[in-house]
Write a protein that binds this DNA or RNA. Structure first.
Lengths: 343, 343
DNA sequence: ACAGGAATTTTACGCGCGTAAACTTTTTAT
DNA sequence: ATAAAAAGTTTACGCGCGTAAAATTCCTGT
């Protein structure tokens, strides 16, 4: 590596013996220049390790190579994992991902969207807060920025939605549970923030009807994103009151189930499907910690990779199409039942 | 809000009746202009909602208002939580935080640092991977960018380090455990990625010696960041071989402990401090899930807020000081023992 | 009312690169 | 070999804002 510092593309172009506009083309898309020139540039690149100024690059470009990724709550390992896979796809495709977390707050979600607009990203992958989201803020945002929603759907927002097929999740768990024991009651938050929760309740009710079983929805109190604690408190209350209607509980999501299992342990209720157990608990999501609960949690797993890949692919097509699709598409991925000890 | 779109600061300045350089000053630091002008600008701002072009702003600035935050593994809720608090501090202080996760990979850590350099951030808060980190890459990075290390220390790197006092963590748990029952053995990974792990082992050995007790370090196999699974496999092996030397296990960190508790449950080993239990398990970190394990985990808690605040404060002072401190400082925060059921 | 300093305006330049147009060279196809 | 097409070069302009210097206006205290 040479000692003299290259300060701008002009200087770099001259030391590499190529004109600046061509070098500019190269950095925009290496495959857009002839192989022989590409080689010369890359040779010079190893010599002088020059990187074009990000700000100057993007300031006067029609479209940046930036992709925004917004998740509602990054302390949830589920989103940590999704973000990881999506980031990787972006980088592989030559984009620069920018990751944001709303941390469960509408104000922050709006701030992020605001800031994102001034980043002028090529596109945005948005997993909104859900019920709490400021619909009109998101709608306005989507008007200016090509956006694909994922994980949680808000009707009509964004050019497409990619998520999991909640009916597939619930139908598998309900079918399995009612086939192998008492039919499940459904354990959820009274005012779920996430729209998936509503879809899951509906799917539960539909499935129970189809199986000619009596549905039973248990709604527990609590607000916010501390689902485990909410599940735990709700569980403790139910167990103390002995008001569980069946010996089989299907939780809306794994984080609630983690709290419920903790409550069961504390209350001395044995959870599991083997003989001598008092209660079966199952759930949905296959949270990264679901396999470490006591007992390990039977759950319906997301196809993390499929959702991540499809989210990015859809956004990529959207960007290529100039930011608009003809119609809003929804891609839903089915679940895979993961049988563990809890049910 | 007016219908005519403001395209640049020039136009905004004219509609607000202020000169462009003054408007520029305002956006750089609102308190740097007279209150009367500030009011006029903010009035116009409500009318036309103009935001200066980020790229043009930063391109020709001595110092951007960007702060980079790098964590080793974002799917770990511990870092999710820390990132949340730090991001908030940055925003409050008028900076724009950019969050990155190395996802446990050196190559990615290096890429992030590379990309960060071209972002020309005012400063960076870096929680390195640790043992796996490319020391020379980090050293080079720190030469160009004012950097404060946090969570995991690499000797001599960065202008300062802010983290937890591992001795405080371990001394409290060891003291408590040996006072209330059999002295603990120490449960850790054979090749821990995180330097805190080494400090904790040393602290354990020191404490045991001080208490005139026989130390016993158990090293389990496994690589990577799937600590829970590593802890679980290690635990299953130990329990099957019945090779645990004492009935009290102190884990290096909570994620290992979560795995170990899962193994205990599977093996039918009753964990807890009450009568009739086979094993006591304690640990360090107060992971967000530690209170939901079965039984809830006795652990030594980080002062999350103090570490986050101090990290940001230190970086802020560093930026104000022009990017260099006279000497490298290390701020260590003590732990708080959290007694739960597991020990 | 006035001096003195602070704040603002004017003027002017440059940052580093995208991009367009016209021209020249190289490659590909006939 | 020759024309057509593709790729590269030259030249030139502009993006939106930071920033510096000089001129002007404003505010504060007396």
């Amino acid at each position: 590596m040479s000692d003299e510092q290259i300060r701008n593309m002009e200087q770099f172009a001259s030391v590499s013996g190529i004109s600046r506009p061509t070098v500019s083309k190269y950095f925009n898309d290496p495959s857009s220049v002839r192989k022989s020139t590409r080689d010369r540039i890359e040779e010079a690149l190893e010599e002088h390790d020059f990187r074009p100024n990000v700000y100057a690059m993007n300031q006067n470009r029609r479209l940046t190579k930036t992709i925004g990724i917004v998740v509602p709550y990054l302390a949830d390992p589920f989103f940590g994992e999704i973000a990881r896979v999506i980031e990787r796809r972006c980088i592989e495709a030559g984009f620069t991902p920018h990751l944001f977390s709303s941390h469960g707050e509408v104000a922050l979600e709006n701030e992020i969207l605001d800031g994102l607009r001034s980043l002028k990203p090529a596109g945005v992958l948005l997993a909104p807060l859900g019920r709490l989201s400021d619909k009109s803020a998101i709608e306005t945002f989507c008007k200016y920025v090509p956006t694909v929603l994922f994980d949680s759907n808000i009707e009509g927002m964004g050019e497409a939605f990619v998520g999991s097929d909640n009916h597939s999740f619930v139908s598998q768990t309900v079918e399995y549970l009612s086939r192998t024991g008492e039919p499940p009651c459904f354990f959820e938050m009274r005012n779920p923030a996430n729209p998936n929760a509503n879809k899951r309740r509906h799917a539960y009710l539909t499935m129970m009807e189809r199986l000619s079983l009596e549905p039973n929805v248990i709604k527990i109190d609590g607000e916010g994103w501390a689902f485990e604690e909410i599940g735990r408190q709700g569980g403790l209350k139910l167990l103390a009151e002995k008001s569980l209607p069946t010996d089989t509980v299907l939780c809306s999501n794994d984080r609630l189930a983690i709290g419920l299992l903790s409550a069961c342990y504390e209350a001395g209720v044995r959870v599991g499907r083997s003989a001598g157990c008092d209660l079966r608990v199952a759930s949905h999501d296959d949270h990264p910690y679901a396999r470490f609960t006591c007992p390990p949690l039977t759950t319906a797993a997301h196809d993390y990779n499929a959702v991540s890949d499809q989210s990015f692919e859809t956004l990529y097509r959207l960007i290529e199409s100039g930011g608009r699709f003809d119609g809003r598409t929804e891609s839903l991925y089915p679940a895979r039942l993961i049988m563990r000890e809890s049910a």
